[in-house]
């Protein structure tokens, strides 16, 4: 029975996923992560901060910047640990636990470093950092990069683009919600319900990107 040989042939990864660098593919990843499969509006990742931090434009930008920053670092950390540690040691089943620990300690570390060396940046991003550990967009992008079998380069590109997509959704939402303050909303829909309705309309708009970059 050489079933295992057969299996290894059949389930091995598409090769472009692993090596080489292709500008077209990179653009496709960027467009997909920002628009077509927008993390918030299409993949439903990072909804909590999307609703919680989108009341003010300033805080939306701050949160977005913090997410892009941590997402990139978390992808670097998780990709490296997964491919250089867990895969060779055949411990891939520890992926979830390893990734969440990486993210949690990374957030702590970034917080401490910022506090020490860049108080100004800490002032700006500090309050958002603790919220990020439980932002599923961060763990989501780390897991997606592994599932899609992206190389480190593509993974980082995907992470940054996903963070930009998240920020875009957040900032758009913040702008809309500031307008919404002045709008005449039926009392029953005030607050969260109308926020979801607005998000739904934005999501429809983002459906229009389907087809861009395939």
């Amino acid at each position: 029975m050489s079933g295992s040989a057969l299996l290894s042939i059949l389930i091995s990864a598409p090769e472009t996923g692993n090596g080489g660098f292709d500008l077209g593919r990179m653009m496709a990843i960027i467009i997909a992560a920002i628009f077509v499969n927008n993390f918030v509006l299409s993949r439903f990742l990072g909804i909590c901060p999307f609703l919680g931090v989108s009341k003010q434009l300033d805080s939306a930008l701050g949160m977005g910047a913090a997410v892009i920053f941590v997402m990139t670092l978390a992808t670097l950390g998780s990709w490296t640990v997964y491919n250089l540690l867990l895969v060779p040691m055949e411990l891939t089943y520890l992926r979830t636990i390893a990734f969440i620990l990486i993210i949690a300690s990374l957030v702590q570390l970034v917080e401490m470093i910022l506090q020490k060396f860049s108080p100004a940046l800490y002032q700006a991003l500090g309050i958002f950092l603790p919220l990020i550990t439980t932002n599923c967009a961060i763990l989501g992008v780390a897991v997606l990069n592994i599932d899609e079998k992206y190389s480190l380069g593509y993974s980082l590109v995907n992470a940054i683009a996903a963070g930009i997509g998240f920020t875009l959704a957040l900032v758009l939402m913040a702008g809309l919600r500031q307008r919404l303050e002045l709008a005449d909303v039926p009392p029953a829909l005030k607050g969260k319900p109308v926020a979801f309705l607005v998000a739904g309309v934005m999501s429809i708009a983002f459906l229009g990107f389907a087809g861009l970059g395939g």
Binding site: F44, K192, F196, L197, G200, L207
Partner: peptide, 15 residues
């Protein structure tokens, strides 16, 4: 599709 989730949830919360 994705928008349906947002919109239906908005109405359910309103209810």
């Amino acid at each position: 599709l994705a928008p349906g989730a947002f919109i239906l949830l908005g109405f359910i919360l309103g209810f």
